Simulated assay, not measured.
Amino acid sequence: MPPTDAEAATGQAPATAPPLRTTEAGTDGADTLELRLPDDFVARFGGTTGTRTPAVADLLDGVGDWGPTLTPVGAFQLVPVRLERDLPLISRWMNDPAVAEFWQLAGPQDVTEIHLLAQLDGDGRSVPCIGLLEGTPMSYWEIYRADLDPLARHYPARPHDTGIHLLIGGVADRGRGLGSTLLRAVADLVLDRRVPCARVLAEPDLRNAPSVAALLSAGFRFAAEVDLPVKRAALMIRDRSLRDLL
């Protein structure tokens, strides 16, 4: 389990969405949007999952192949981290005081590198990703198997429970509700692409009130307080069965 929680800050970034190609019925009757990406986006981010060990078991149903989704703030996509491309940017974000307070990864670049390598060279239970909004990197995500994580020792885990960690990188993107919008979009992506998964989880620090509020606005419910090794956390859950109600 990464030692950090879902990100507290929210924001907004304007741009023009890629053209829509098709709409098809998705899981639970939700529509799945297939978007055509700009050529310069494909050139920069396409063609690889970004992991250092391609032979690792796919425990998360191909996060790198989930593709873009259309949100109220534009086209958004999760792209698995490539260390040589993304480390400087992620390290810079981790050294923002507002982020460092909860992620605890401030310091030289190799602090962030060690954190990323633990996932990239691991068994595939956690996938670190860059979040692209209209093709612009603006957030860092970790999509992980909560049922296979040490977190499962601290709550009644169910098979295929999937967890989310998030930080919004730019100060200008925070405080405008962007975090809630993207948390909802990514939780819905998980439920659409991971059919066996019935619940999406987050476990922000209880002190991180903006993060808890963002998750509530994104359709998560407060389930419990849990004592984790590095924090007292709010266990937040988005249920497949309630996704159209919350």
Rank of each mutant, 00 (worst) to 15 (best):
D192G: 15
E24H: 09
D40A: 15
A172E: 10
V127M: 12
W141Q: 06
V200C: 02
A187Q: 05
Y140H: 14
G47I: 10
L228S: 03
P80T: 06
V230H: 12
L189A: 13
F76H: 10
A146K: 01
L246Y: 10
R44A: 11
D110L: 05
G62C: 11
A6Y: 14
L133I: 15
R92C: 08
Q12N: 11
L70N: 08
L215G: 07
A8Y: 03
T51C: 09
G175F: 00
D239A: 06
G26F: 12
R232I: 01
A224E: 13
L35T: 12
T10D: 11
E225G: 01
S211D: 03
P128M: 03
M1F: 08
D161M: 01
S139V: 08
I168H: 06
D192M: 15
A233L: 06
W141E: 00
E34P: 02
L116F: 09
V171W: 09
R153Q: 08
A118L: 08
M138P: 03
G219V: 01
R184H: 11
G74F: 09
I143H: 04
K231C: 09
Q119C: 08
G74E: 04
G64N: 13
G107F: 11
A25D: 14
A55F: 14
R184L: 02
P38W: 08
L117N: 13
T69I: 14
F76C: 01
A233G: 07
A209S: 01
L133D: 12
R221A: 14
A57R: 08
W141T: 08
E7Y: 11
P18G: 09
G124R: 03
H160Y: 14
A223C: 07
A218C: 06
A17D: 14
R194C: 13
A198M: 03
R36Y: 04
T162L: 04
P38F: 06
A146W: 05
M138A: 07
I143L: 14
R238A: 05
A198N: 06
I90R: 08
R92E: 15
A30S: 08
V212Q: 09
T32K: 10
A106D: 15
R125L: 00
D110V: 13
D110P: 01
T49M: 07
D121K: 00
G26H: 14
R85C: 09
G219L: 07
F41A: 13
D39W: 04
P2W: 10
A9Q: 03
G29C: 07
L235P: 05
I164N: 13
V212T: 04
G46V: 11
A13P: 05
L235A: 01
R193D: 07
L78T: 15
P210Q: 02
P80L: 01
Y140A: 04
S217E: 11
R176E: 15
T51D: 07
P159W: 03
R232Y: 03
F220H: 07
A43C: 09
D123F: 01
H160M: 06
P14H: 06
H115Y: 10
M1A: 05
V73H: 12
P88Q: 09
